[in-house]
Amino acid sequence: MDLMRLENVGKRFDTISVLDGITMTVDEGQFIAVVGPSGCGKSTLLRIIAGLISPTTGQVLLAGRLLTGVNPETALVFQSFALLPWLTVQANVELGLEARRILVAERRRRAGFYIDKVGLEGYEEAYPRELSGGMRQRVGLARALAVEPKILLMDEPFSALDALTAISLRELVLDLWADPQVPVNACIMVTHIIEEAVELADRVLVLSTHPGRIVKEVEVTLPRPRDKRWPEFNEYVDQIFSLMA
């Protein structure tokens, strides 16, 4: 069953065609990675799915209905975290709940639940400037999860982190994805790192550049946790690499 569907979506900025003829579905229970060289419009695609940018051509369907405006079933995790420096961790995580006019007690409880889930219990009263990059991205994850989106969107979520921190955060995302208490039905991650896509995703969309088109969809059928030393893992990486090159 598909949660979302993009039909022949294209986007032009002035005369430059950024995306063209994108048709894809977002299925229940799937982790989708979008890979492509920089400038292939993958971040634009993610913002079209989020309803932050409207497509020039084609249509976006949410549960069969045409999407207009911000997509209420999604929440975004940003490359540079997008935290408010003047709010505590708790207040940052509550931001989306505040917007939904959820009562204070329920807001506290729900934010606390996701703060706990991302391993940030003990940091509630801290400000973002006190935190390392990895901890800031955990706040970004908790904030997105707290609004309980059906579809979690992540835009290069690990690329501002050092290599070791990125490893631990990928692991965290996999744990959250497998956690039955976290009600996310689908996940879409934009990345330029092929290994990251193969490690996390069920399906990898490979985009070409100028304009961004879907070159191929690669189903990754490896069981989790996936090991980079597996020969099959490397076959996927090689296959996607050659599609991008």
């Binding site: 990895g134 490893i167 631990s168 090991d227």
Partner: peptide
């Protein structure tokens, strides 16, 4: 060394 890095290191050694 921050917590995330420590966790990342343990993860990579376990992977190996």
């Amino acid at each position: 060394a921050g917590v995330n890095r420590i966790l990342g290191l343990l993860e990579i050694i376990d992977d190996r």
